[in-house]
Amino acid sequence: MKKIISCIIIVFACTSLMPYVTQADAMAFNVKAILPTTQNNPDVSYFDLRLKPAAKQKIAIEMSNNTAKAITLKTAVNTASTNSNGVIDYSASKVKQDKSMKVAIAELVTGPTQITLKANETKTVAYQIKMPQESFDGVLLGGFYIAKKQDEQMNETEEKQQIKNEFSYVIGLKISNTDKKIIPKLALNAIATTEKNDKTLIAATLRNTQAAIISGLKIEAKLTKKGSEKTIVTLKKEQLGMAPNSAFSLPIDLEKRALSNGEYTLTVAASDKTNNKWQLTKDFTVSQAVTAHEEQTTTPKQAFPWTLTISVGIIVIALIVVLVLVIVRKNKRN
């Protein structure tokens, strides 16, 4: 009987060793900017560089492998954009630049896009910046996006799951020529109706057309029928941000309200933390009526619990084996 109990314990021990993701995976590597003498603000940990027109500047990033096996890091220099949540984003590489952007910071930087580090190795990786010939006021903004390259032998499902859980670092890169302060300018562009996640929305494009960062942005948007003062729907947002010379689509939920064909007016009152204020108004046409949209409650698709199923199966098989052994032993005694 002791042997049988030992078998059961071994089975349970084996099932407890099923693969799982730990917090240590997120600490597989770390990176640090090595600030050059052209650093404009020495109190920050990202690159904030003051460079002259046509200047060439070498910068470096220290990358460390904290694991006992070799890893490969992939790096990309991205121009800062603004995502649909009103957050400055340094991770997106394929974003259409606003037409007001004269120079994209990603076009100025060259260097390796993959770095292999041996077990517990630290390496200093160099990048080169080549400034445009003409001087500019304001700031260029972007960042180094650094992530661990995944195993090439992963199947498609594993790779998608790994990308979803990808751990990455961003080191900001800000470049200026002068001290001249540029006042941000907010503009309201294209407006249209759209659908997302079973909701009917008004999508209003907001643009920051200057080489200046907008922080602490507050927005109050109001939709009315053209020529009417009666509000159909309002939206209030706070603590938004916008990258220099960028645009994003502000989603305004119609909250199940219907819109008939016709002319409408969107009014946006906005301000930032430096007390810049904007009052924006734009008329637009709804050519296809929007019916009152009832939200559908959907149940998210759950992944099949393979680990639990296999574990239970092993335990059931072990119990059957134990039961058979007990019956055989009892029959022998009889």
Rank of each mutant, 00 (worst) to 15 (best):
T82Y: 05
P244V: 00
A55D: 05
R207W: 04
I183Y: 10
K277F: 03
L254I: 13
N85C: 00
I310H: 06
E156A: 12
K222C: 02
V326T: 13
I214M: 11
F136Y: 15
T37N: 15
T298E: 14
T37A: 15
K256C: 12
K149I: 04
A55Y: 03
W306P: 00
R333S: 10
P36W: 06
L308P: 01
T15V: 13
G227V: 02
M131K: 04
N165V: 13
T67P: 06
P132R: 10
K94A: 10
A28L: 02
E238I: 06
G313D: 14
T178F: 12
Q302Y: 12
F248A: 01
Y46C: 01
R50I: 00
F248Q: 02
T22K: 10
T37D: 15
Q210S: 07
P251E: 09
C7E: 14
Q288F: 09
A13S: 11
L235H: 13
A68R: 12
A54R: 12
D89R: 01
V170S: 09
I182N: 08
S45C: 00
F144S: 03
S287Y: 10
K181R: 13
N177C: 11
A204S: 09
K123D: 02
I317Y: 04
Q302S: 15
A190L: 11
P36Y: 08
I61P: 00
